[in-house]
Amino acid sequence: MRLVVDLNKCQGYAQCAFLAPDVFAMHGEESLVYDPHPEEQQRERVARAVAACPVQAITADGLRGAPGSAPRSALGVPDGR
């Protein structure tokens, strides 16, 4: 999947880095670096990150409106981590 962060909007709240730590990382206290092309298995975590961003700075394609592609684990821990 693809994503981009509008880093003008981003205020370094790090919500994304908490929720999808393999995709988003803080480099220092406030500056965000991220992988614009995360693997498919990150989809569930990326969805959480996108929703949690308090300034809605993250745009990812194929998160909504892709029926059946979303994870279906009841506990939200599909890969058991």
Partner: peptide, 22 residues
């Protein structure tokens, strides 16, 4: 608690959360 020093601490609690809820 979180990034940059402890980026996985909260993610790492997902298991505890799931177990506790169950």
């Amino acid at each position: 608690f979180g990034p940059p020093h402890r980026p996985r601490r909260i993610d790492g609690l997902r298991g505890v959360m799931a177990e506790t809820v169950t």
